[in-house]
């Protein structure tokens, strides 16, 4: 069955982009994922969990 609207909007299926620093070789996609993990961790620690305005 072909449902074309399910096809990916952005095609990632082309030759990968890789970053090199000396011994380190990493795909741009992995750098983004790891960078986002660190960023989200820092945000989770620093953004106030304001319980006065935000009852959960």
């Amino acid at each position: 069955m072909t449902l074309s609207f399910l096809a990916a909007l952005i095609n990632l299926d082309k030759p990968g982009v890789f970053l090199h620093w000396g011994v380190i070789q990493i795909s741009l996609a992995n750098v983004i994922v790891i960078g986002l993990m660190v960023a989200v961790f820092l945000l989770a620690i620093f953004i106030p969990f304001d319980r006065k305005s935000r009852r959960r």
Partner: peptide, 8 residues
């Protein structure tokens, strides 16, 4: 318990 880190 007052941090976003708890939701992970």
């Amino acid at each position: 318990l007052s941090s976003w880190i708890y939701i992970f």
